[in-house]
Every structure is written in C-alpha cells, then in structure tokens.
Design a protein around this nucleic acid. Structure first.
Lengths: 146, 146
DNA sequence: TGCAAATGGTTTCATGTGAAACTATAAGGG
DNA sequence: CCCTTATAGTTTCACATGAAACCATTTGCA
C-alpha cells in the first residue's frame, strides 16, 4: 500500500515541535542577545558553569551537559573569556583539559539573565492548566530519555 | 525576592523542547538530505505544494503555510526549480506573484519522502501510550494557537 | 490620473554552524 | 620504554541563515 495522501504539515509532529521550539526560544533569546550581547549557546554554557560552580568544568563536560558539540562550546567559551565572563585555566595533571569558571562579572550577567529565562518559561506554562503541565513534563521525560 | 537559584538546564522547558526538536528532526532530515539532496526547507515547500496542488501557490502563500520567512522560501524554490522539481510561472493579472507547482519529477520525490516522514513520526509517537499521545496533541494545539 | 505607500520576491552582507582536518597531550599495549 | 591510538580542544572550509537593502509591480487615495 502506497502512502500518497498529502502530508498535512500543520498536523505533523516534527513540524509542530519545530515551530513551538522556535517561538519559545526566540522570545527570550532576542531579549538577552540584545541586552547582554549573549548568544543562546553562550547562555547555555554560563548556565551549566553556574550550576556546577566550584567544580570547574572542562569544555567537554560543558558540551555533555548542554548537548552542544565541542566546536560550538569552543567558540562560545572563546567569546565568554574575551568578554571577561569566564576564566579558562589548564587542568592540573592534564594539560589538554581546560578548567572553566564564571568570573564575578559572569555571575552578574547570569543573575540578570536567569530570571528572564524563568519568567519566559512560566509564561509558556501559564497557558496550560495544572493537569496539562504534568502531562507535558511526563511526555518530555519519556521522549527525551535515550 | 531575587531569583538566584541555579537554573537546571535539563529541566528547563525551552531547552528540553530544543533538544527534542533537534533529535526528532535530524533523524529523518539526514536521511532524505542524503538520498534526495533535499533540505528541510525544500521538503516543507514541496509538502505544501503537494497538499494545495492545482491551486498553484505563490511564494508568499508557501511562506505562510510553512512558517518560513520569504527569503528562505525564495532560496528553497530557486533550488527546487533548478532541480526540475517545481515550476514557477507568473501570475495572471499580477506580475509580481509567482505560481508554483510540483512537476512530475517533484511528485516522485514527494511520494518517496512522505512515507519516510510519516514513519519517523510514528516511531516517535510509538514511544508514548494512547493517553499520552492524546495529551500531547492537545498541549501542542494549545501552545501553538496564536 | 498621478504619486506615495504597500506588496511580492530576490540579492547582498554579515554572521552562525557542522564536518573534517589539525595540534597537543595522555593512555595503553607490546 | 616506545609507538600506536585516543582524547581535549581549536581552526579551517563550505554552506546555511536572517536582516536589511533592493527592484518591480500594484494599490490606495488626494
């Protein structure tokens, strides 16, 4: 049986996910790109550095925790270091590895952006009722695991 | 009250949506990009042309129905025309507008790709049970309207 | 009518991005 | 130990993308 019925793009899951992701991400990204000269990739790097602060993550660990590839991380880190938002040192005992940490300046940016991000998330979730939010969380968990 | 708790990226909705969208889209996109030399944007254009066939859509209408901007559509159409998959004529009575249609060759590609796309969607949805699928549809409807 | 504003579409420019190649260092196996 | 292989990270190249400028045509209205 040949499957020739026209594909209805607006009912097609990958398409709908793509639209939703773009609108949700862009809404906030534009804001902090403009106000802080901070790209999405840079923000993600800052977020994980903030979260695992004190440990001093390597670029590879950042890549793992942000689902970005190492090239993207390398570039984001280079910009963050140039902007004085992140320090990069060499790992004791493994000169290949870098040790990344937020600077005080980096923390200030983080503390300004984090509430914006949270507010944006709340705004989206506010359009759902409690039951829908619970299902959404569950569905994402399921689809995202391995 | 200042909101300084570290932002957990892996629980953050925009981030999770972004990961999910990328994995879902790339899984299939890679396949038909390689086999048919067809980008995601080109595929979307073909999908709406197939769906509204006979009417002969303009580039603007394609843009509306694919949520792509007019630049992206212009480029995708140019490639499709060059590949002989789409014809472009000038609208009767409005020389600014184009009238786009799939060629027989275009239909062949469409008929080969559409089942791949559907199969990919089914594969994702198969990871959810019936109840979850219903909620997902409902949640996307709600989040995507307006 | 004639002219400013709007519309359809393309081109240009500056920037972002992934893949692959590359450098440097470390680890592992004979 | 040496030498192959693996790993961390950067650079290069080729291409995708969005914003703004642009051209042609049409519309609205003084």
């Amino acid at each position: 049986m040949i499957d020739r019925a026209p594909l209805e793009l607006e009912r097609f899951l990958p398409y709908r996910l793509s639209i939703l992701t773009n609108t949700v991400s862009q809404a906030i990204a534009r804001e902090y790109e403009r106000r802080f000269d901070l790209s999405v990739t840079e923000w993600r790097v800052m977020a994980v550095l903030a979260r695992y602060d004190g440990e001093g993550l390597s670029a590879r660990e950042v890549a793992e925790r942000t689902a970005m590839d190492k090239v993207a991380v390398s570039r984001a880190v280079a910009r963050l270091v140039a902007a004085g938002r992140v320090t990069r040192r060499t790992h004791h005992g493994d000169k290949r590895r870098s040790v990344l940490r937020l600077t005080a300046k980096g923390w200030k940016v983080h503390d300004a952006v984090a509430p914006l991000a949270r507010a944006q998330e709340r705004e989206v979730l506010a359009r759902l009722d409690a039951e829908e939010r619970a299902w959404l969380a569950r569905i994402l968990d399921k689809l995202l695991m391995a």
